[in-house]
Design a protein around this nucleic acid. Structure first.
Lengths: 195, 195
DNA sequence: GTCTTATCTGAACATGCGTTCATATCAAAG
DNA sequence: CTTTGATATGAACGCATGTTCAGATAAGAC
């Protein structure tokens, strides 16, 4: 019995994306079948193809959407002249943003190898753009003599790895709230790059 | 034509493990078929079952082997009384050990969700034991008044995340050698936990 | 009330999956 | 030289995969 209750495109579409994100994060892209996604939405597998040309696009669209959101959110953040304040802003922004969407973060970091080469290049470019934001702050701080880092590129990657790692252990309702976590990490970042 | 050139068990066995490790690291456990592993070894799929009861054991044995190696190597490291020297030792050990086996590191961090619950618990226990090594050092440093960390558990995870991140960008023959990388990271770790 | 069109079903397609097993081969033991 | 046993083949098993599509259904337009 098709079309059981009206025009559902604007409802089913987001539900497909949500179900795919959830399942990809839990079990991995390759381990999730189109039929599992369809079942989670409450639809037959064939109906998914009204919303995505194929499984690969489903993954790519999730990842590109996540990176676009990340860069857009970052673009609206205030940009203080002081490198230390900028770095604190970046640190707190990164932790908050990533803790708010653990599934998208997980998928975007773990499923890179399941992207086609073209799609991989696109995502990689967006990630690089985000990293450049942090590296710019570090460079400015070094130039101003307030940071002492041996290598801005490596420090950038090290800081991002440390901050993103928070998603592997943080659980809502745990011992610490997001603001406390931000402060603990900011304390480490601040000292690590200090002159 | 079976058994084309003598008794190969002691040669084929390791080759199966190596091929599985390589392919799992490149494409992910779920995306790699037993036939692909067999092809890499130069054998038919059925022959793999002389060396593993099933695909899951192939993954689990690789991960347990990696964690066992990690803990065994760590156990032979010298244990200075000074917390700062201990932390430097741990930092350099961690980077060196992980850069020497990038495939095993990748698989052990990415394929946790493809382990059965029992196998997952085992690997998780070994990882915890390793983390406890670092946390012990941090606690000792805090007690001695040479480290100032807000939360030893979180700092442990943050430091390990930062150090392990080196495997995502380091390439042999690149701009920096392992010793230089060790020094850069040790500089950041040392400052991040400093009092 | 009829028609159109978006949405979904359910079956089908070719292909690949992990795993099993009877059979073949050959190294080494007697 | 014969026998044994480890090691491999290659075919087969039932089942799942991503994707396609003709047909069914119902909401909204006229």
């Amino acid at each position: 019995m098709a079309r059981t209750a009206g025009s559902h495109s604007d409802i089913t579409g987001p539900r497909v994306a949500q179900a795919a994100l959830r399942l990809f994060a839990r079990h991995g892209y390759a381990a999730v079948s189109m039929r599992q996604i369809a079942a989670e939405v409450g639809v037959q597998a064939g109906a998914l193809y009204n919303y995505t040309p194929d499984k690969q696009s489903l993954l790519f669209d999730l990842m590109r959407g996540h990176m676009d959101e990340l860069l857009a959110a970052r673009a609206t953040a205030p940009a203080p002249g002081d490198p230390v304040a900028s770095l604190e802003g970046f640190t707190r922004f990164h932790i908050r943003f990533h803790l708010e969407r653990p599934d998208a973060v997980f998928v975007s970091y773990m499923e890179l190898r399941n992207l086609t080469p073209d799609n991989f290049a696109t995502i990689e470019g967006l990630r690089r753009a985000y990293e450049d934001e942090l590296e710019g702050i570090l460079r400015a701080g070094v130039a101003a003599g307030v940071f002492a880092v041996a290598d801005t590129k490596i420090t950038t990657l090290a800081v991002i790895a440390m901050l993103t790692g928070v998603t592997t252990w943080y659980r809502t309702g745990g011992r610490l709230n997001v603001a406390q976590v931000e402060t603990i990490y900011w304390d480490m970042v601040r000292k690590a790059v200090a002159g």
